[in-house]
Design a protein around this nucleic acid. Structure first.
Lengths: 149, 149
DNA sequence: CTATATTGCAACCGACATAGTTACGGAGAT
DNA sequence: ATCTCCGTAACTATGTCGGTTGCAATATAG
C-alpha cells in the first residue's frame, strides 16, 4: 500500500494554525505549507473537528484549536485521524485446526498490544506544544523563511 | 494500501518450524497453517535466511532456526522482514520557505524516533520462545487441533 | 444587494504496495 | 531416471491513499 502521511500532516496542520492564529487561515494558505491541495486540508480539518480538536465552524472565522496545545497530545491526534489503527497488523485468517495457527492471532494480539502501549504512551506524553516549541527553536537557529511560498 | 501481515506471518512461520522441528517441513505444510500459498512461504523463508534467522539450505533438509528461540527477539524478526520500516511516516515534501513547513519533518523525526524506540524496545525484549510458550499454553488450555488441516 | 471568495462534501482517478499465482530450472531422494 | 520440493522471477488482482473535479451553501467585500 501507499504509506499514509495523514498523521504527520495533521500535526503539521495543527501546529500551523496555532502558530499563525493571528493570520487569515484559508485552506489554500495552510496547504501551501504542507504542499498539498486545499481539498485535502479541508478534509483533514473536518476529521479533526469531528474528533473535537478543532472548534466547530463559527461563521467565516479561521479554524482554531478547541483547547490549548499543552492539552493536546500526539496520541489524541493519532486517535483522531487514524482511529487507533494498530501499529502492527495481525493475519487473522489462519488454520484453526493447527495448534500453532489456532493460537497465533491471540498470542500476537497480546504481544503487539504491549509494544503499542509503549509507543502510544510516549505519544501521549508528547504534546502539540512540544512540537511547536521545537519548531520555533529550530526556526530561530536555522530558519529565515516566511509563511509565504 | 493493503496492510502488510508479513511480520505476523514470519513470527508464525518461525514458531511453526520450531514447534514442528521433528516433522518433515515442506512449504506446503507450513502454508496450510498460515493459510497462504507455498510460494509465499518460500519467499518468506528466503528473506529470513538472508537475515540469518534460518540456517542456509542444507540439502533436502527441513528449514531450521539458526539459533535457539530464546536468542531471537521479535525485533530481530521485524528488522529481517520489514527492514526497520518506520512505524510512523513522515511527509518530507513540505514548504522549505515556511517556518513551520521547513522544520516539521525534522521535529517529527526526533519525536517519532522516541515512540518507535519504545515499541522496538518492547519487541526486543520479547523472544520467539515467549511466543512459543504462549502458543503452547493456549493449546493446552483450549486447543485440541492437530497439525493437519 | 450582487459579486467574489471560500468552505464542506461527495464522487472519482491514478499511483503504488502487497499477497497471491504461474512458471520453470535445479537439487535431492528413492 | 523419476518424482518431489525448492528458489526465484514475472505477472496479476486488490485495496488504500493522496489528489482532483465539481458543486451547493455560506461569508465577506464592494
Amino acid at each position: 500500500m501507499r504509506i499514509s502521511t495523514k498523521f504527520s500532516d495533521s500535526i503539521h496542520l495543527l501546529s500551523f494554525i496555532s502558530i499563525f492564529k493571528t493570520e487569515k487561515l484559508t485552506s489554500e494558505f495552510i496547504a501551501s505549507s504542507i504542499k498539498t491541495s486545499p481539498v485535502v486540508v479541508r478534509r483533514m480539518i473536518g476529521e479533526l473537528r469531528l474528533a473535537g480538536l478543532i472548534s466547530p465552524y463559527q461563521g467565516g472565522k479561521s479554524p482554531q484549536l478547541s483547547r490549548p496545545p499543552v492539552d493536546i497530545s500526539l496520541f489524541d491526534v493519532y486517535s483522531a485521524v487514524e482511529h487507533k489503527k494498530p501499529l502492527f497488523n495481525i493475519d487473522k485468517d489462519t488454520n484453526p485446526h493447527c495448534p500453532v495457527g489456532a493460537h497465533v492471532p491471540d498470542v500476537l494480539r497480546s504481544i503487539y498490544s504491549e509494544a503499542e502501549a509503549a509507543a502510544f504512551g510516549q505519544l501521549g506524553r508528547t504534546t502539540l506544544q512540544d512540537v511547536i516549541d521545537r519548531i520555533q527553536v529550530a526556526h530561530q537557529r536555522y530558519g529565515e523563511g516566511t509563511a509565504e511560498a
